[in-house]
């Protein structure tokens, strides 16, 4: 991937406290345009707290956060218009049709009626879903669902898409196809910010950060981390860093 210097996420000394509890402890990192950035950490390490802040859903206690060129304190609405979000839980509505789901999400992301119609058509053609247009989501195969869920998360051409454990519980082939969609989005200049518990997926990322107890304890290309810790895979890097006791 070509090195581009334009940063889509800039975080400096981000602190988030809940009472006495420090959920995010002076986080500092940048994510470049088109980069696939893996945001890793144990349960309870503070990932969700940080993602909520980056998506404009919660304020930091202190620190500088800039997402897609907008300031988190003063321009949250602009941030929300320029990001996409998808998680395992937050997926498609089973009892709506393919077309209704597209229309629903496009509407939420603020597209106009004309834009929605236009993009829904393009999208269904691209995904070969034309014939499934009026089928309920619960009646289409898992692989289609996943493509569609990802596509609606970027239907408004966001600069960044946040993926929160997008592949949990899916079969190995579907999981790999999903990563092809991620690579494609990245090649089209969309920045991908992804969390996962699959450590082989961590290796698909351009760079990863690993959080432990609210702090980022490592951040680099997967190959560099493996070399630094003298191990053969990211799982072992993760175990070395995140295993307490």
């Amino acid at each position: 991937m070509a090195e581009e210097k334009e940063n889509m996420i800039v975080v400096k000394e981000l602190v988030k406290k809940f009472g006495n509890f420090v959920a995010n402890d002076h986080l500092t990192f940048e994510v470049g345009k088109g980069e696939v950035f893996g945001f890793l950490g144990a349960n309870g390490a503070g990932k969700t707290t940080a993602i909520r802040i980056l998506c404009g859903l919660s304020y930091p206690t202190s620190g500088l956060v800039n997402v897609a060129g907008f300031d988190i304190y003063t321009e949250r609405e602009n941030i929300k218009r320029n990001i996409g979000y998808m998680s395992q839980r937050f997926s498609l509505y089973d009892d709506l049709t393919v077309y209704e789901n597209i229309r629903f999400y496009a509407g939420i992301y603020g597209l106009s009626r004309n834009e929605i119609r236009e993009r829904a058509d393009i999208l269904m053609q691209k995904l070969n879903l034309d014939e499934a247009r009026n089928k309920l989501i619960r009646d289409i195969p898992l692989g289609w669902k996943q493509k569609l869920a990802f596509s609606v998360a970027i239907i408004h051409d966001p600069r960044i898409v946040f993926l929160d454990e997008p592949t949990g519980g899916v079969d190995p082939i579907t999981r790999r196809n999903f990563w092809n969609l991620i690579f494609e989005a990245s090649r089209n200049g969309i920045t991908v910010f992804v969390t996962t518990h699959y450590m082989d997926e961590a290796e698909y990322c351009d760079r990863v950060s690993i959080m432990v107890d609210g702090r980022i304890v490592a951040m680099d290309k997967p190959a560099m981390l493996k070399e630094q810790y003298g191990v053969v895979n990211m799982n072992e890097v993760f175990l070395k860093l995140a295993r307490v006791k």
């Binding site: 518990h197 993760f238 995140a242």
Partner: peptide
């Protein structure tokens, strides 16, 4: 039944 789903790699181990 899926005791480790959504659980990080350390806790899983």
């Amino acid at each position: 039944d899926e005791p480790t789903t959504g659980v990080d790699a350390v806790s899983r181990m």
